[in-house]
Write a protein that binds this DNA or RNA. Structure first.
Length: 568
RNA sequence: GCGCUCGUAGCUCAACUGGAUAGAGCGUUGGCCUCCGAAGCCAAAGGUUGUGGGUUCGACCCCCGCCGGGCGCACCA
């Protein structure tokens, strides 16, 4: 089953062939409803190539364009656009088929990839904070969508569990640890150890040296230090798991930086041997002299003290993903500050001969009311846990007010879905690169492009079925008469066109915008077209449209990692 | 200094990779509940897309120059 867009593109392509014109341009949704439903710029592109009159070419194409029963006779408009207006019968037929399709018309990719998506990447011994929301939620949504489109996806959490900070954490553990505090709030205690040790080491060279020694011992697999390190990692992971549970985010593998530790010497040796790396100022570096923007920015893969750093780890990580995980595509989702770093890493991989499809997917920041990075009143990072708890609390308050008669169990479930959904959606509904201002009132509003608004549209549909006493529609043959129901059905057919587009430039906000418009269309339908009170066959047809709306809303939100309540 | 990125209605954000008269929500103003959930819908007002040039049938989008914000530029991750 093909989308209208694909079908019309095929018709256009056929017409161009018959008219002996080269294939050009495309069919896209109309920019404005008054132009119909779809438009093509083929004639204007051909006109430019051939130096001819675009409207004349459009007429010529039209003479051979047979859209069959899909649309009314196409028209030429403006500078040479070809406009298509779908026929209600065609929309009814297509929507009917969607009802029978558990993929809602979304085609599987014709070239499935083996993708590893690296997202999340929290650091051990540090609390997760608001900043983690974006890359985590974005990566999760991309993973869900890629999977739905038929790609083979591995979700990898690249935990920051190795590095120089452990020298201080271990020293602090040995000298300053408060066991009771650790039991109460492990991460807070680890942070305290790190902070206090850090302060001491800056003022006391002896402490600084001692920390360095602890790190060396850890890297030499000293049993005591290793077990302290292990305990820190385990405590942190437990904390992370709790957040992922609340967020409904799950990983296939969680390979921390430590996992690659044994491989680092080989990486450096190999790169030196192949001449990709060289020694400069005592460090082992890779230079990119032929790439202007990297020309004076070498990647250091072994420090002059002999230690490895994160560039070394990331080269090893790339190897592992390609060779051990057998991936041909690597997506890394992180904040923008790491752009330069991954440019270097990808370039090193290319020099090693890998033709893997590397994508570094970056995102903007979450800002406070002052338009600066969101911070607590005291200036620290806002803990993720606090944000999630508050989201659920605020949702609960709204529910208590709007629908006090629900059972407590229902309220708990619903406030979780609404609160967490609101936080996720606020992020995903925006273009991933823009910095956005965090606002509880906006994200939890029932009006506008928000999760609660979409969830409410879903709940209204479900409510119709509850009232009807029927679980679903009895028919799947639609009869479309009212403009509002034609409009809604048309919208439903577009789901299959939208979902694949998200991966074009990794923009879940395209899907979010679509779902918002779908909910708008549904509400328009809801106002204009009585369902239960209408006569057959309109009643059955409208129930079927409702069913399809619910499924598209639910599936679409699910692809964004957002759950829907049955009532709210 | 160099590189990347962003600048769109009073506010918060879109604009499907160059398409037609730049769209939403909030806020403001005015309408709609004897009718499936008003947690909703309809309508109005609101713009020199930071700025100055250029490319072309057509530019928020591409190119060049400024202005302003953010981030990054050799051993922290």
């Amino acid at each position: 089953m093909e989308t209208f867009q694909a079908q019309l593109a095929q018709k256009l392509s056929d017409a161009l062939a018959v008219a002996e014109l080269p294939n050009a341009g495309d069919v896209t949704p109309a920019t404005d409803a008054r132009f119909g439903d779809y438009q093509s710029n083929a004639a204007m592109i051909l006109a430019k190539q051939r130096g001819e009159n675009p409207r004349k070419i459009a007429e010529k194409i039209l003479a051979h364009l047979d859209v069959d029963l899909l649309a009314d006779k196409p028209t030429v408009a403006g500078a040479g656009f070809i406009n298509f207006t779908l026929r209600a019968e065609a929309i009814a037929k297509q929507a009917g088929e969607l009802l029978r399709d558990d993929r809602l018309g979304v085609a599987r990719s014709t070239s499935p990839k083996k993708i590893v998506i690296d997202f999340g990447s929290p650091n051990v011994a540090k609390p997760m904070h608001v900043g983690h929301i974006r890359s985590t939620v974005l990566g999760d949504a991309l993973a869900r969508i890629a999977t739905f489109l038929g790609h083979d996806v591995i979700r990898d959490n690249h935990i920051g569990d190795w590095g120089t900070q452990f020298g201080m954490v271990i020293w602090g553990w040995k000298h300053l640890l408060d066991r009771q505090a650790l039991a109460r709030d492990p991460i807070a205690e680890l942070v305290r150890l790190y902070k206090e040790t850090n302060e001491r080491s800056t003022s006391d060279p002896a402490v600084r040296d001692a920390c360095r020694q602890e790190l060396v011992k850890l890297q030499a697999n000293d049993p005591e230090n290793f077990s302290i390190w292990k305990e820190c990692v385990d405590l942190s992971m437990k904390e992370f798991e709790r957040a992922y549970e609340v967020l409904d985010i799950h990983y296939d593998v969680q390979r921390g930086e430590s996992f690659y530790n044994d491989r680092l010497p080989d990486v450096v040796e190999r790169l030196l041997k192949s001449g990709i790396a060289e020694i400069s100022e005592g460090a082992v570096c890779v230079f990119f002299r032929d790439i202007p923007e990297l020309a004076d920015k070498p990647a250091i893969i072994r420090k002059k003290d002999g230690g490895f750093n994160y560039a070394t780890t990331d080269v090893a990580t790339v190897d592992y993903r390609i060779n051990d995980l057998n991936r041909d595509t690597i997506w890394i989702v992180t904040g923008a500050p790491q752009l330069l770093h991954f440019k270097q890493i990808f370039e090193i991989a290319r020099r090693e001969g890998y033709d893997t499809d590397f994508r570094h997917i970056t995102n903007g920041n979450i800002l406070g009311d002052d338009r600066k990075l969101m911070k607590t009143r005291s200036g620290g990072n806002v803990p993720l846990r606090d944000v999630l708890d508050e989201a659920i609390e605020r949702a609960r308050k709204i529910i208590d007010e709007k629908n006090p008669d629900l059972s407590d169990a229902d309220k708990i479930d619903i406030s979780h879905k609404i609160g967490i959904g609101a936080v996720k959606y606020a992020d995903l509904s925006q273009y991933r690169m823009t910095d956005y201002v965090f606002s509880w009132d906006r994200m939890l509003s029932l009006q506008g492009n928000t999760a609660p608004y979409l969830q409410n549209a879903y709940v209204r549909v479900r409510s119709i079925f509850r009232k009807a006493g029927e679980p679903g529609p009895k028919i799947d043959k639609l009869i479309l008469a009212e403009p509002a129901e034609i409009n809604l059905a048309k919208r439903l057919c577009q789901f299959a066109e939208i979902v694949p587009q998200v991966l074009n430039d990794f923009r879940p906000n395209i899907l979010a915008t679509y779902l918002f418009e779908l909910a708008n269309s549904f509400h328009g339908f809801y106002e204009a077209c009585p369902v239960l009170k209408s006569e057959e066959p309109a009643r059955g047809s409208r129930l079927a449209i409702c069913e399809l709306t619910a499924r598209v809303l639910q599936t679409g939100l699910q692809l964004l990692g957002i759950q829907v309540p049955e009532q709210m």
